[in-house]
């Protein structure tokens, strides 16, 4: 138990030092724009289908779960608004980010871990290049950009999935479903959902690059790095979810002035 706790503290410390290195490289020795866009294209191409499918079903699930209860109150008109708002503000970003931590996070940490254990990272250093500048920074920035984009796409798909279920499962027309969306889903909600997506994207990118870069011990070590990445990312995302919710709650109070 105590050893596990020490491991976690060491991991967090190591991760902070690592991100400091990435940041200083980003400031003083930026990588080329082309290498970032290559990563963006790669990640997006690999993961858009998974994200879209996940988003669609998350939206559909939320509508199914909400519709029975709201029906009891005779307020089916609010179904569209409530389900959409609930999806965009919390459940959507959370579950879609979980998907991405499996897809993007695990993949990247496997890729970097393989480069580490086959000495490719040492080779980069010996050939006079900085591995953080050459391979970590482009991946980090690429993953942040494309995950943010993918999460946003997933949220849009979730609205579609919810709408479809509203029509076929709850039997309300499209007009009725969308009528209350603008009144409940404020622009602040959308902003707060997108803010969550951005934070999750950064958490995801940081953990998988760190874990992959520091992998040791052959094929088994790569496997271990992937498992640790997936678990650490999910836990960090849940905690980040709470932090951002508190943050946007406070922000809303400040904006409303009470």
């Amino acid at each position: 138990m105590l050893r596990g706790l020490r491991g976690i503290v060491e991991d967090i410390g190591g991760g902070v030092v690592f991100m400091g290195q990435v940041l200083s490289v980003a400031l003083f020795k930026p990588c080329s724009f082309r290498s970032i866009s290559e990563q963006i294209v790669k990640v997006t191409e690999q993961s858009w289908l998974t994200t879209a499918v996940a988003g669609f079903f998350v939206g559909a699930i939320m509508t199914v779960q909400f519709s029975l209860q709201i029906q009891q109150f005779g307020a089916l008109g609010y179904l569209g608004g409530l389900a959409t708002s609930g999806t965009i503000r919390e459940v959507g970003p959370l579950l879609i980010a979980f998907m991405l931590s499996g897809k993007v996070g695990a993949f990247t940490s496997a890729e970097l871990g393989t480069m580490r254990v086959t000495e490719q990272i040492d080779a980069i250093r010996c050939l006079g290049a900085n591995p953080i500048q050459e391979i970590i920074l482009p991946r980090w920035l690429g993953i942040v950009c494309s995950s943010f984009f993918l999460l946003a796409v997933g949220l849009m798909m979730s609205i579609g999935g919810g709408l479809l279920m509203g029509m076929f499962f709850s039997g309300i027309s499209m007009q009725e479903y969308v009528r209350h969306i603008p009144t409940i889903v404020t622009s602040f909600s959308i902003l707060s959902g997108l803010f969550k997506c951005l934070v999750f994207a950064m958490v995801l990118a940081s953990i998988c690059t760190y874990k992959g870069y520091t992998a040791t011990g052959g094929a088994r070590g790569v496997g271990r790095a992937v498992v640790n990445t997936a678990v650490a990312t999910m836990v960090a995302i849940v905690i980040a979810d709470w932090v951002t919710s508190v943050f946007s709650d406070v922000a809303l109070r400040i904006v409303l002035g009470d």
Partner: peptide
């Protein structure tokens, strides 16, 4: 190492 990484990712 690449194979193990790929298998793990695909499974997840």
């Amino acid at each position: 190492a690449e194979g193990v990484g790929l298998a793990t990712t695909s499974a997840v």
